[in-house]
């Protein structure tokens, strides 16, 4: 267990310069999608809870799929 925890820290220490911006992009997409979901009541496909789950759980691809397939007009 110890060695895994150590590895994770070491990984973060070595690669934070990559992982931080990637995490920011993911987070940005997720927040943009969530804001859009909660501002709109109708979607081309699916329901609100379904999109919230997809956007939160499937990183990067989830929000993109929402914007392309699910985004409603109002």
């Amino acid at each position: 267990m110890d060695s895994i925890g150590f590895d994770l820290l070491k990984l973060l220490a070595d690669y934070w310069i990559f992982l931080l911006p990637l995490a920011l992009i993911q987070l940005g997409l997720m927040i943009a999608a969530l804001i859009h979901i909660f501002k709109h009541a109708n979607y081309k496909v699916g329901k609100r809870w379904m999109w919230v789950v997809i956007v939160c759980l499937v990183s990067t691809i989830g929000p993109i799929i929402y914007f392309i397939i699910g985004r409603g007009e109002n």
Binding site: Y15, F18, P21, L22, I25, G28, L29, A32, H36, T60, I64, F67, I68, R71
Partner: peptide, 25 residues
């Protein structure tokens, strides 16, 4: 307004980060 530009810019930015990351890892 249809978020197409946002998505594309972010995806390409992610590619930009992923390329050196993959090389290093």
């Amino acid at each position: 307004r249809t978020y197409k530009v946002l998505i594309m810019v972010l995806v390409f930015a992610a590619f930009g980060i992923l390329s050196p990351l993959t090389a290093k890892m």
